[in-house]
Amino acid sequence: MTGVNIGILAVQGDVAENISATRMAMDELGIEGVVSQVKTPEQISDLDGLVIPGGESTVIGTLSLINGSMKKIKEKIASGMPVLGTCAGMILLSKKAKDRVVGEMEQPLLDYLDIKIERNAFGRQKDSFEADISLEKIGIPKFMGVFIRAPSVVDAGKAVEVLSKVDEKIVAVKQGNIIGTSFHPELTEDLAVHKYFVNLVQKKN
């Protein structure tokens, strides 16, 4: 196969939006390859890059654990595969998560990105917001961030680069080839974050 093979974890959540954003990012960059939904460990093992979409992290985690995808994703990350996690995706990548109201969580996590997450950090749905943010450290200028029941990063380890904050809360991080965002770049027309990710995959490949 020519080009990169990028998968969108298709257990639950806004899979179609991430497929579309990744596809458009590749087309604009002129990078060849395939973007597809992945659900099973077999599909995941062939990937050069993975996007874990928005959704409910408890649901995506629990179901990925049941069919063995969780283990396979961990192996792939350990071998250096780039991963982009948006919202629920960033929660799943983290080492530890708590909920703003309910407290410490014992949900299945990939335990890789050295951060502690606070779920629903900005409040409930009524507090969901849009705001202009930028990720200057990775060369992404102002765009509209869409934060839906968004988590924030409360602790970040030494290897973690903080890319953006809103109201003193960390909302985007990078650790090696792993990018996590509290917001949903797939819900806006600005493709900058997906382009950055596709470039990472291309370079690694």
Binding site: Q12, D14, E17, G55, C87, Q125, K126, S128, I148, L187
Partner: peptide
Amino acid sequence: RGTSTLKRGFAHMLKN
């Protein structure tokens, strides 16, 4: 807050 993107986007997170 309360824009169509945020309201419809919330529903998109429930898909599947």
